[in-house]
């Protein structure tokens, strides 16, 4: 196939499947109709069925990945919107973010060592608990593969959002703040959506923790790698 045709084809397929999945999810909001899961599996299935290489697929969709940059800049808006909440709870937000990030990186490091994963896979696994744009840029600094990190991060979000409520029935956690922190730190975007279903404060705290954890990890890793 002509290179331009290939690029336009895969770009259109991705946008079309995504738009369809969003429309379906608006009618039937279930986890298995989530636009992420549907676009991932349907486009993935099509790539395999048509024997396309990832490079060919990327030729039509690379521009979408570039938009993660401006989207990261856009996180300044929700942070600005919740400035009073940040000021009022700055200590507890700080405690949650620092604890969560250390647990996330520490547990990934130890489990990757326990399972004898290659250094490349271990580095790709480390930033998986933070929101995808931050996780992908952290992964490349650590020597991982950002594209693999994107998948590990997505699995983390799907799983975390699915088991969050179950965990809350066992954990002695009563405050809306801690419940929001659980979702925002453990399951980033998917967790924030879940926390919003539980309550307004849970959702706001989860969203804040998610963005702050991303920033803290990116800055921490940058400082750490400059210092080494």
């Amino acid at each position: 196939m002509n290179a331009v045709v290939t690029a336009v084809f895969w770009g259109a397929i991705t946008l079309g499947v995504y738009a369809g999945a969003r429309a379906l999810h608006a009618r039937r909001p279930r986890w298995w109709t989530s636009p992420m899961l549907a676009t991932w599996t349907l486009c993935g299935g099509l790539i395999v069925a048509l024997h396309t290489t990832y490079q060919d697929y990327l030729s039509g969709t690379q521009w979408l990945i570039f938009l993660l940059g401006p989207a990261t800049v856009a996180f300044a808006i929700p942070i600005h919107r919740h400035r009073t909440l940040i000021r009022r709870h700055r200590v507890m937000l700080g405690v949650g973010v620092v604890t969560g990030c250390l647990l996330a990186i520490g547990s990934s490091w130890l489990l990757a060592g326990l399972f004898h994963l290659s250094p490349e896979l271990r580095a790709s696994l480390l930033p998986r608990s933070i929101t995808t744009p931050f996780a992908m840029s952290t992964s490349s600094v650590l020597g991982g593969l950002p594209e693999l990190t994107a998948s590990f991060t997505a699995i983390t979000g799907l799983f975390g959002a699915a088991i969050g409520e179950l965990l809350l029935t066992y954990l002695p956690v009563r405050s809306a703040f801690a419940r929001g922190a659980l979702f925002g730190m453990g399951a980033h975007g998917a967790g924030v959506a879940k926390a919003r279903e539980i309550g307004g404060e849970e959702g706001a705290v989860a969203g804040l923790i998610m963005v702050l954890a991303g920033l803290f990890t990116v800055i921490g890793v940058a400082v750490f790698s400059a210092w080494l």
């Binding site: 489990l111 399972f115 002695p172 922190a181 399951a187």
Partner: peptide, 25 residues
Amino acid sequence: KLLAAILVGTVIVMSGTALVVELGF
């Protein structure tokens, strides 16, 4: 093994963060 690391790690992160924040609260 990767999947296991992600699933176990996520349970650790979620439980640990929620418990520490609750204690602080």
